[in-house]
């Protein structure tokens, strides 16, 4: 069910509330990296709810699911799923349940770290937005000024740190999906794929389809877009497409390396992707780090603004 987040009345009180999607189910970014505190652990993070509190409330949707999907054998089909469901906010907190492949895995409350007997740690809360990018400069014809457009904003995030062995092999694929009332809402693997390389007319299909079908559904479109970006180098575009699709964030959990190995909070994915997609034509946006330092320890995200 869509939630009418918009304001209540209008110039005519009879006017119906606007139809708006629930930003709390809108995925911003996902991260996957070896735990800096324990090399035997891997950290999986999903941030949702862009500019939390501005147009969507600062909690998680009680009508949706937040799915952390793991592919263990490279076929872009989930072999493991950690599904988070939240109850309505009561007295400033939400209780939530985590199911792993359908079985209850953990439960807790937002704002508090949950530790399981198997050594997992979970934290769901409002955090400072860890993404950094000179969006304005990009949209002003790459006239970058080094201003981090996302500085000062907040997101809702789920942080899951688990023993690497719990995921199975060292090399896994990770993506996050949200659903709204059982209906697929958003999906994300690598940064930029959906937002840059999938046309607006295909986004609904992308969001409801499975990653395994990405090459067939979107391969030609993505290759064409990359070729446009890199000045017509179709061979490189096709090679990149084969790497970028299906949209799954691949990570070798035995390695502490960053992007393109998973994605760490400090990774400047913008510079990496600008460089990659423009064939070196543009190499940086001038924003090299988040405006706020990330904490060293779990949950690794900074407190909300």
């Amino acid at each position: 069910m869509f939630v009418a987040i918009s304001s209540l009345s209008a110039a005519d009180h009879l006017d119906s509330p606007s139809v708006q999607n629930d930003g709390r189910l809108d995925i911003n970014d996902i991260y996957a990296f070896q735990s800096p505190q324990n090399a035997d652990n891997v950290v999986l993070i999903a941030t949702v709810n862009p500019a939390a509190g501005v147009f969507s409330p600062t909690d998680f949707s009680a009508n949706g699911n937040y799915e952390f999907n793991i592919d263990q054998n490279g076929d872009a089909v989930a072999d493991l799923s950690y599904v988070f469901t939240f109850n309505r906010t009561r007295r400033g907190r939400q209780s939530y349940l985590v199911r792993r492949n359908g079985s209850v895995y953990a439960s807790g409350q937002t704002g508090q770290t949950v530790t399981t007997s198997g050594g997992a740690k979970i934290h769901a809360a409002l955090f400072e937005d860890p993404f950094f990018f000179d969006l304005q400069g990009f949209q002003n014809g790459f006239q970058f000024t080094g201003d981090d457009f996302f500085a000062g904003l907040n997101v809702s995030a789920i942080v899951l740190e688990i023993p690497r062995t719990e995921l199975g092999p060292d090399n896994v694929g990770f993506w996050v999906r949200t659903t709204d009332g059982g209906v697929p809402f958003d999906r994300m693997g690598r940064p930029a794929i959906n937002t840059v390389l999938i046309s607006s007319g295909s986004k609904d299909l992308f969001n409801i389809s499975a990653p395994a079908n990405d090459p067939a559904n979107f391969g030609a479109q993505v290759a064409n877009t990359i070729a446009t970006l890199n000045g017509g180098d179709t061979a490189t575009a096709q090679a990149l497409t084969a790497i970028l699709l299906p949209d799954v964030l691949t990570v070798d959990t035995s390695s502490s390396a960053g992007f393109l190995n998973g994605r760490q909070l400090v990774d400047d994915v913008i510079d990496a992707e600008l460089n990659l997609l423009t064939n070196g034509g543009v190499t940086t946006d001038g924003v090299d780090a988040n405006d706020v330092d990330f904490p060293v320890g779990f949950p690794y995200l900074a407190s909300p603004n």
């Binding site: 509190g53 501005v54 969507s56 409330p57 600062t58 704002g111 409002l126 909300p304 603004n305």
Partner: peptide
């Protein structure tokens, strides 16, 4: 010369679950 870190912070001012 114009590099700066935009420091306008969105102080939440919102209780958990509310809008700012």
């Amino acid at each position: 010369s114009t590099q700066s870190r935009s420091a306008t912070r969105v102080a939440s001012g919102a209780a958990y679950g509310d809008l700012i």
